[in-house]
């Protein structure tokens, strides 16, 4: 914290800015979170645990983790491939490609579910063929995976593209000139450089995959204990006026996400400690 005076702000300005930022985060992020936890624990820890322990809730937790376990790796591979192609090479239409990758962010969750119904629903393009072969996509796990992959599609790529653009390709080019093959370059040069960004992208992707509600709601069919994910189970409990149960499951989701994010922060912190002075 010993910088030349004129490249940082006065302590007072700093404090004012910190207070402003914290106040904003407090009102917009922390308060809603507190509402969720206080509603969940309104009647104490007992009802909270009971709500999380019902067979339906457990089935929803399992399904949510399964969906995330399938969709996140798929988007991770895609994200790495897309960032490699986009940042290491020059080709026309790159902006268009990036925009197309961004597109799922801007598509309403209502629509992101609907598109898969239009494709694979009984009245959809592939519906009759699927029915004839007794394959189920919509209102089953594959449909939920598809909708989740669509929703979380941009996360890893979006995290990696700016990072890899910033890092350039000199390191990789040097490695190639030293005789490394593509996989070796990626494994020993690129991956160490991007691992935090990658981990972070995967965590965000995972958080969003577990929390997605709108799109999944369209393709799930809401069958209790079978196709209900955690967010859908929250809605069901809420609609049953079981507010404690609804917020209990919701807070569990928030906890899952927070734990992974805090874990990432701690990892990063330890990494920083080992590398003080050797930062980029």
């Amino acid at each position: 914290m010993s910088r030349p005076r004129s490249t940082t702000e006065g302590r007072l300005t700093q404090i004012v800015l910190i207070v402003l930022a914290l106040a904003f985060l407090g009102v917009f992020l922390l308060l809603p979170l507190i509402v969720v936890f206080s509603e969940a624990l309104k009647q104490g820890l007992g009802p909270f645990l009971d709500a999380v322990h019902t067979p339906d809730a457990l089935a929803a937790i399992k399904l949510t983790l399964l969906i995330a376990a399938i969709s996140v790796p798929l988007n991770m591979v895609f994200g790495v491939a897309a960032s490699w192609a986009i940042t290491k090479f020059h080709f026309p239409g790159k902006s268009l490609l990036i925009t197309l990758i961004d597109l799922p962010f801007s598509v309403s969750p209502v629509v992101s579910g609907l598109i898969f119904v239009l494709l694979f629903g009984a009245q959809g393009w592939f519906g009759p063929w699927l029915a004839a072969h007794d394959l189920k996509i919509i209102f089953a796990v594959p449909g939920i995976v598809l909708a989740t992959v669509f929703i979380t599609f941009p996360f890893v790529a979006r995290e990696l593209i700016p990072l890899m653009m910033e890092q350039g390709k000199d390191d990789e080019e040097a490695a190639v000139s030293l005789g490394a093959n593509g996989w070796q370059v990626f494994r020993h040069v690129t991956l160490p450089n991007i691992r935090w960004g990658l981990l972070y992208g995967v965590l965000l992707c995972n958080a969003r995959a577990m929390g997605e509600f709108g799109a999944v709601s369209v393709v799930s069919g809401h069958i209790r204990g079978l196709t209900n994910t955690m967010p859908l189970h929250v809605e069901i409990l809420y609609n049953e006026y079981d507010f404690v149960g609804a917020f209990a499951v919701a807070s569990l989701l928030a906890l899952l996400a927070l734990v992974t994010l805090v874990a990432k922060t701690i990892l990063e912190w330890r990494f920083d400690l080992h590398h003080t002075g050797a930062g980029h």
Binding site: I61, K62, L65, L66, A68, A69, V72, L199, N206, T260, A263, K264, L267
Partner: peptide, 14 residues
């Protein structure tokens, strides 16, 4: 860390 994540996730499939 990556392995731990993978395990949490795979333990819950089925």
């Amino acid at each position: 860390a990556a392995a731990a994540m993978a395990m949490t996730v795979s333990a819950c499939s089925g």
